[in-house]
Computed example of a mutant assay.
Amino acid sequence: MEKLKIAIQKSGRLNEGSLALLKECGIKIENGKDQLLTQASNFPMEVLYLRNGDIPQYLKDEVVDIAIIGENTLIEKNAEELKTLSLGFSRCRFSIAVPRNAEFKSIKDLENRRIATSYPHTVQTFLDREGIKAKIHEISGSVEISPNIGLADAICDIVSTGSTLFKNGLTEVYTIFKFEAVLAANPNLSEKKKEILTRLIFRIESVLRARNTKYIMLNAHKKDVENICSILPGLKSPTIIPLEEPDWVSIHSVILEDEFWDLIDQLKQNNAENILILPIEKILV
């Protein structure tokens, strides 16, 4: 039986987020300690645990079929065309940082400066685009200490909370781009593997739609229904269910968690009562 080979990061935040996503998709993976290859027990899939920086080449060489990977790595390895789907986790920034006591008014201040980074291709592309000449020092790890030991005047690295920069006396001064985990796929899949990938994407999209949504139920007088329904977005339109008490109905809908409190305030102003909010596990459309 043909199986889809998926690569995920061997360890770290992307590893944890990838396994959590597959679990939410109902895919069971027997993950023994230090295993580099394992099988899904209920889905035609093999999982390979690889170094993040090696994954784009494995995709290009067709050693693996798909991968969950940081979009920044695809950009650095000149493999952006393999991106298939944004996954909504491991959101970070790719930013320039300088010592807190350094003068920095604009990116032009990088002219003739030394920049330490683990992503030389991405940084050089940025510098070329901005017409800036600077010297790049490629470093495989601990980029943040470079200015403190006199190796560089600035760094360009992945930033999540900024706490590591702060601890090393650096301040973030310019964001080149923002990124997140993505699903990447080799375009030369067999028809059978394309069919398996379509099934997987359907599951992933169902999970992603549910992550930022809530199910809302409320009671309202019939005279307020039109105003309340105009507030609720819903997937298509709110569901309205008559109640035993005359002139009253129950209204059900789906709302975005980011808009939750603003919507609640509006609903209360339009006489909504007994509002109940429930989590959603999956949304299938």
Score class of each variant (00 low, 15 high):
29 I>P: 01
107 I>P: 00
100 R>E: 12
219 N>G: 06
236 K>N: 09
69 I>K: 03
282 K>G: 05
133 K>P: 02
149 I>S: 03
269 Q>D: 10
188 N>H: 10
195 E>K: 12
244 E>C: 07
119 Y>G: 00
131 G>V: 08
102 A>P: 00
225 V>F: 12
82 L>W: 09
70 G>V: 14
127 L>V: 10
11 S>L: 09
250 S>T: 13
131 G>R: 02
15 N>C: 05
154 A>F: 04
139 I>R: 02
9 Q>D: 08
171 T>V: 15
192 K>W: 09
39 Q>Y: 13
174 Y>D: 01
153 D>T: 13
64 V>Y: 03
96 I>D: 00
184 A>L: 06
141 G>A: 13
240 I>A: 02
39 Q>P: 03
51 R>P: 12
248 W>D: 04
264 I>S: 00
65 D>G: 06
6 I>R: 00
36 L>G: 07
128 D>R: 09
61 D>T: 15
53 G>L: 10
47 V>Y: 01
259 E>M: 08
8 I>Y: 01
200 L>W: 00
259 E>G: 04
222 K>M: 15
32 G>H: 04
36 L>N: 07
257 E>K: 11
168 N>K: 13
57 Q>Y: 15
187 P>M: 13
232 L>M: 07
191 E>H: 10
14 L>P: 01
53 G>W: 04
29 I>Q: 02
208 L>Q: 03
52 N>H: 14
99 P>H: 08
77 K>R: 15
197 L>F: 07
55 I>S: 01
101 N>A: 12
66 I>F: 08
98 V>E: 00
220 A>E: 03
10 K>T: 07
227 N>Y: 13
32 G>D: 02
93 R>L: 05
76 E>G: 07
212 N>I: 12
12 G>T: 07
223 K>M: 12
158 I>C: 07
185 A>G: 05
72 N>M: 11
220 A>V: 11
75 I>C: 04
249 V>C: 05
13 R>L: 13
194 K>E: 08
255 I>T: 05
99 P>G: 05
9 Q>V: 15
96 I>Q: 00
47 V>L: 06
273 E>D: 07
91 R>C: 14
176 I>G: 00
103 E>K: 14
195 E>M: 08
242 P>Q: 09
241 I>T: 12
63 V>Y: 09
60 K>E: 10
154 A>M: 10
253 S>V: 02
187 P>K: 12
27 I>K: 01
77 K>T: 14
272 A>T: 07
34 D>I: 15
92 C>K: 13
131 G>S: 05
86 S>C: 09
112 N>M: 14
28 K>R: 11
189 L>H: 03
38 T>L: 06
26 G>H: 02
150 G>Y: 11
181 A>M: 10
263 L>G: 03
